[in-house]
Design a protein around this nucleic acid. Sequence first.
DNA 1: CGATCCGTTGACATCGGTCAACGGACGTGG
DNA 2: CCACGTCCGTTGACCGATGTCAACGGATCG
Lengths: 253, 253
Amino acid sequence: MPDDHPLLRKLDALSPLSDEDRRFLAQVVAHPMAVPARTDLIREGDRPHGVFVIVEGIACRYKILPDGGRQVLAFLVPGDFSDLDVDLLEVMDHAVGTLTPCRMVHVPARTVRDLLDAHLGIARAMRLAALGEAATSRQWLVNLGRRSCEQRLAHVLCEMLVRLRSVGLASETGYHFPLTQVDLADATGMTPVHVNRSFKALRERSLIEGWGRSIVIRDVAALEGVAAFDRAYLHRTGSTGSCSRSAPAGLRA
Amino acid sequence: MPDDHPLLRKLDALSPLSDEDRRFLAQVVAHPMAVPARTDLIREGDRPHGVFVIVEGIACRYKILPDGGRQVLAFLVPGDFSDLDVDLLEVMDHAVGTLTPCRMVHVPARTVRDLLDAHLGIARAMRLAALGEAATSRQWLVNLGRRSCEQRLAHVLCEMLVRLRSVGLASETGYHFPLTQVDLADATGMTPVHVNRSFKALRERSLIEGWGRSIVIRDVAALEGVAAFDRAYLHRTGSTGSCSRSAPAGLRA
DNA sequence: CGATCCGTTGACATCGGTCAACGGACGTGG
DNA sequence: CCACGTCCGTTGACCGATGTCAACGGATCG
């Protein structure tokens, strides 16, 4: 019962799966392959041929700019997967690659189609997961557009805590997070050295502890406060809970 | 034949529609309603009850932060529509509202379902449109994360040129664009006064002309250069064309 | 043992934000 | 028709957050 495959765990939480769905999925996902760190799974301009499911490690979506800069668009953690719309997508407008060594499954387009057509329960859960990823990406837009560097970093840390916890990879307050400061910089739109300084600031405020492969959040509520983090957006349930303040007609306060 | 409804025009370009599809769509979209500027169509936390199709004017998706700040997530121009996944969406994680006076159609969830189930051609085109919006939002992520203020503004202007042209609302080099500098600021993650200054800079470089309700781009190629704009991402056809530079394994240059 | 990668720190430069004032366009009420 | 208020664009002075450049040291790996 405690089939702790992160994909099952995640999907089941979004939309409870039948035993048959679980069995089918478990089979699809049975034989992960190892992929080294910093390896592209698919590049911008490639035509996608299936879906990648992350089983272990951290990957990301990213784009490279003409000047060589990189923007990380999203982190993919165990249980996450790349685009479902393989059939519609002609070419990737961004790349997907590993950041740390990963284990993952490549699900061929054919199987994906089958999964979505013949297993409605799975389809629903996966569609919900995709909506969740879209919501997260909107949060990132807010993060990059409207928050200070320290807040951005704090927000990422809060987000990862919630996401990793939901697949059993984080404790109440901490998790393993073996990313480079360069990676974080490319995700938060800052400079690597400023990532470092911001970490230092968060540490000095006693909001987090120890850096280096492992994050410990000393005061989750406080960190969420600093980041203006909204726990709700990662849970597709009931009302959102943030922004209770009256915001009439889209005008600024 | 030149049925210039922006929705038809846009969808037909993405995936050619049958005459019956066109007739059906034209009927769905027959009676637009007027909505004043700065009016919310749906708020964060609301449960969506259908899809809005913009026929005229400019709307946006946005989020309000606890401190009252606003981040515009996307512009919606004629032919664009709000979320197709009404059935899956419990609550909105962001708001949608007009920026200028608009004319639009509200398509009830029931009709949307019918549209997607019974009219595969339309469904395909609309799904492609949704993918296009996702691609655009990734561009915005890059914009906010990795570009200077002047570049961000230039990028928005380039994007709007392409998008408005594709629905016949822009000439070769210019278009009507009655947004406030505050709106632009909230979209580009800058300050209203800096939007002003950046406009001035672009004008002084002779890249654009006249501001005030109307944009004229004097040198499209140059502006796209400044913005590092990639025409391809708005056209779902063939290969992407940008980033020809070799970018091995996601490493920075 | 040397090369490389990564985190760390300091000094310095600058982009963009903040604060404040002004003026034109527009709408509203006297 | 005029007086006033409001919204918006514009500009200047100032300052702070963040980027840039450079150096160093520890860890890891061949």
